[in-house]
Amino acid sequence: MKLQQLSVFLENRPGHLAAPLTLLAQEGINILSLSLADTAQFGILRMIVRDWERAHAILKNAEWVVNLTEVVAVDVQDRPGGLAEVLQSAGDVGLKIEYMYAFSMRRDQRAALIFRFEDPDRAIAHLKAQGHHVIEAEELFAAVEG
């Protein structure tokens, strides 16, 4: 139910984002989605990739500070209100969201929402009970990469 997200520490300086991404590109690792959190001084690169174990090892061996975080993917209609309904539902029961990002999938006008919940297990149970489609890793990769 949960996806593994890679997070990498970066200094906020020109060229510093390119280095880990170039490394992954050289190893043939495709990035499904990413988001970048930044402050004036440093940034955190967060990525979803299919082969996360290999990507994690590659980055670690190159001595990047990288960790794995469990995130939840929800499959919604790519239309006005698709995201708002999920957020509403999460807010109703006080689920805390640390951060989130979204991307559209090629298939069927749908979008994937990636959530970093404080309590992912509780979030999954609730969202499923409310009829939302919490998407499995394999299903997500199949939908995006075909």
Binding site: Q5, S7, F9, A37, T39, Q41, F42, I44, R46, V65, V66, N67, T69, E98, Y99, R116
Partner: peptide, 18 residues
């Protein structure tokens, strides 16, 4: 230098360390 022990995917956690 950031070590794996203090690193977090959350900005707030890193700002806290700092």
């Amino acid at each position: 230098e950031v070590t794996p022990e203090v690193f977090s995917d959350k900005v707030r956690a890193l700002e806290d360390v700092r």
